[in-house]
Amino acid sequence: MNLTILVILLIGLVASAVVCVALSDLLKAAIALAITSAILSIIMFLMGAPLAAVFELSVCAGMITVVFISACSMSRIYTRKEHEQRQKARNRRFLLLPALLVALAVVVFLVLSPHITGVSPIPSGGSGSGVQAALWGSRQVDLIGQIILILTGVYGVIVFFKEKEADGK
């Protein structure tokens, strides 16, 4: 596997994140965020973390995008003129960001370059059984916490949708 592919993916990850925060249209921003998640999941898969990659792709690129799009559909819709004005204002605010990022990347690389000893090989293959052992063997408390969090989230969503129905009536 080539290091170049990983570098291209990292650049794509940062570029899609910039597009995600710079776009004025929330729907397009949600789609850019999904692309960011998809690229991150490819990086995870290449680095030998397939289970986390599947979670990232299905949950972050799928479910979170749906949540954002539903939130956009429930909020105010701008006219074309308003939208153009907002995009112009947003472009002005984010004009500095690409230059800032390039400068930051160069500075960080210059700081880290004396400490770089060589190119390590990119791992191949997954760690499926290792993850099972890690999750069920040493991270049971995390699993209990996750179950509690999921139940809390479900309860929260039920409460908010109930309020919405009440408001609708």
């Binding site: 995870m44 680095m47 973390a49 040493s138 991270r139 916490g145």
Partner: peptide
Amino acid sequence: QMAQAEAYVIT
């Protein structure tokens, strides 16, 4: 320790 990292990522 990619397995441990993967468990944390899922969390």
